[in-house]
């Protein structure tokens, strides 16, 4: 059965040739349009410099705006996925809890976030809530006095220390926002586990925690991996909306470089390749993980 599938997939038929030909023609047509109709003079020479530049004073290669933006997006993505997963797990458990108050908290959270546009949510959070909590503004002042070693580690983990406050509020906004969708995925996963599994685990006299930890969650987890991967990829792409609150991630850096150099197409093509790299990397990772968990069944 497995073997038959594999053979089917690798056999090349005339349909593949036709599809490939159509694709090639389409790309050729696009290139023709851009060159002859759009009056666009391509100049890719500025792009490499904005990725990495040779610093003559330091005598070494330094990441420039686009690479820095790429790292910022990567940081946002990794921290965002971690934080959103924690929020989603906790809230997902709340939503399936037998305690009414917890269910209400979970439900309110999800409905509140899902029914407010992300941009409004970002503005409200960044301009009201984070200004009410002095932490976010003070953290910037506190970081200014930190020792060089801690500054270096902060920079590695969270980006430019001066913008730590911004980074944290952006990260929290992003995680809260995506966490609502992950909550729903977690809830659906938990509820997809058959009643019989709960009953069998309960009847063995396992504690509530053990039932969740050893019976329900592992089964729910392998079922939610595919939608979870999709949500994480959404998170990475959605991270560009936090550019509105002065977080210099990839989209923000691209806007600045495009504005300064006026090489609009080159910059945005480069940036889309970079987003693609992160997102595709993420889906490959999840594909492998999925295969591993399904192997153990």
């Amino acid at each position: 059965m497995m073997l038959a599938n594999a053979q089917k997939r690798t056999r090349v038929t005339w349909v593949d040739f036709v599809v490939a030909l159509v694709l090639v023609l389409f790309v050729a047509f696009l290139v023709y349009r851009v060159n002859d109709v759009l009056h666009y003079r391509w100049n890719w020479s500025v792009i490499p410099n904005f990725l990495y530049r040779w610093d003559e004073e330091l005598g070494s290669w330094m990441p420039n705006l686009l690479a820095l933006g790429f790292y910022a997006t990567l940081r946002l993505a990794i921290w965002g996925i971690l934080l959103a997963s924690v929020i989603g797990m906790v809230m997902g458990l709340c939503r399936t809890s037998s305690i009414l108050l917890l269910r209400m908290i979970g439900r309110s959270y999800v409905e509140l976030i899902r029914n407010v546009p992300p941009l409004v949510f970002i503005f409200i959070f960044y301009f009201f809530i984070s200004s009410q909590i002095p932490l976010f503004d003070d953290i910037g002042d506190w970081v200014r006095q930190a020792s060089p070693e801690s500054l270096a580690s902060i920079e590695f983990l969270f980006g430019p220390p001066k913008l730590l406050g911004n980074f944290l509020s952006g990260l929290i906004v992003l995680a809260l926002f995506e966490g609502a969708y992950i909550t729903e995925i977690v809830r659906a996963g938990l509820q997809s586990v058959e009643r019989g599994q709960w009953e069998a685990a309960d009847s063995l006299g396992l504690s509530r925690f053990d039932v969740m930890r050893y019976v329900i969650v592992p089964q729910a987890f392998s079922r939610v991996l595919p939608p979870l991967a999709g949500q994480f990829i959404s998170l990475i792409k959605d991270s560009s909306i936090v550019s509105l609150i002065s977080i210099q991630e990839l989209t923000f850096a691209a806007t600045e470089v495009a504005n300064s150099t006026q090489r609009v197409f080159e910059v945005w093509i480069t940036v889309s390749v970079m987003y693609f790299a992160i997102c595709f990397g993420c889906s490959l990772l999840f594909e492998r993980w999925e295969k591993r968990t399904s192997k153990s069944r």
């Binding site: 410099n49 904005f50 530049r53 610093d55 330094m62 420039n64 705006l65 820095l68 806007t255 600045e256 470089v257 504005n259 300064s260 150099t261 006026q262």
Partner: peptide, 13 residues
């Protein structure tokens, strides 16, 4: 906010 030539990025970023 970047806006040529008010504020922009040089080669060093």
């Amino acid at each position: 906010s970047s806006f040529v030539p008010w504020a922009m990025r040089d080669k060093k970023g």
